[in-house]
């Protein structure tokens, strides 16, 4: 197989509050011999909030990010569900509206760029599954996580709206019963935990304005996984991770029950199975300690 090469859009949290996410992404890429060209010019995607204020500006900035991936002639890989949603949504809107695309390109021309629509945008989870292949990962596992029950937490912005996401990846994900992350857990040798909240919202985006609602959503998710005997959770989204990992106190208070589970990033789980060290994967950067590895 030809060596895989992607333009990596890291997003903002990987450079700040989830350094372990950046570390584990690169560690897994090295193990799988995937080349990542980091888009250091990229701006924040607006995290689904900037567009509430200024939709056009949000489009222009996201189009600029994609234009840099196009310049490299590479598929853009995201490592955050919300980055994926915002970038893929921009791509969808520009690819299906010539007038809007022309307006955006008029602005990009000021900095000598053009959005063409030639680069696909895909989350790393689906890049691993679609392009690298689950079977190949399975064969590369050196430390199967066979003693663990792992609860997948998919994160809204990778599975909904499903029509949008079906455009970017080959894996056909059922938004009501998603399976990609379950399949990856099994490939890593662990047992996947089925629970009602696996495709539900963690509440991250209303953490500041509606803290109680956000905390209940987080609490319900961890409680659901706990009740199905999960030893830990795993998520492809750093925003879900922040919520599930750092907000357990508020979540416990909100649902009137003590809840706390270690939460791995999808990349950390794969990394552990492939034999990366806890240090390489940044496991010490979690607030809810991962102390069983």
């Amino acid at each position: 197989m030809k060596k895989l090469k992607y333009a990596l859009f890291t997003g903002c949290t990987a450079k700040q509050s989830t350094p372990e996410q950046m570390m584990s992404t690169m560690a897994v890429a090295r193990k799988l011999d995937i080349e990542m060209i980091e888009l250091t010019e990229a701006s924040c995607c607006g995290a689904s909030h900037l567009q509430d204020y200024d939709d056009f500006l949000s489009l222009v900035l996201n189009a600029r990010n994609i234009a840099y991936a196009e310049k490299h002639g590479l598929t853009m890989v995201t490592i955050c569900n919300t980055c994926q949603l915002n970038t893929a949504m921009t791509k969808h809107r520009l690819d299906n509206n010539a007038e809007l695309k022309a307006k955006v390109n008029e602005k990009l021309a000021e900095i000598g760029l053009e959005y063409k629509g030639t680069s696909n945008v895909i989350h790393f989870l689906y890049a691993i599954i679609d392009d690298f292949g689950l079977d190949k990962i399975k064969k590369m596992v050196v430390k199967p996580l066979s003693q663990f029950n792992i609860a997948p937490f998919y994160g809204c912005h990778n599975i909904r709206p499903s029509e949008l996401h079906d455009e970017s990846h080959k894996t056909k994900e059922n938004p009501y019963n998603p399976t990609s992350l379950d399949d990856l857990i099994i490939a890593c040798g662990a047992k996947n935990v089925d629970y009602e909240e696996k495709n539900k919202c963690c509440g991250f985006h209303i953490e500041l304005q509606a803290p109680h609602t956000a905390a209940v959503l987080t609490g319900n998710a961890i409680a659901g996984a706990t009740d199905q005997n999960a030893d830990m959770m795993v998520t492809p989204c750093p925003l879900c991770h922040l919520k599930l990992d750092t907000q357990t106190k508020h979540a416990s208070e909100a649902i009137g029950r003590e809840v706390s589970l270690p939460v791995l990033h999808m990349q950390q789980m794969v990394g552990l199975a492939l034999g990366c060290t806890p240090a390489e994967l940044g496991l010490k950067h979690h607030v809810t300690e991962v102390n069983f590895i």
Binding site: E41, F56, V60, K107
Partner: peptide, 30 residues
Amino acid sequence: KKGKIIMPWNMPKSDKLDEIQKLIKSSSTV
């Protein structure tokens, strides 16, 4: 304590920030 907070003086910046600022100036609608 877990190294999840960056101090303001260490805040990373995007490369070619001038491009981003130029676009914000020309494309803001609100």
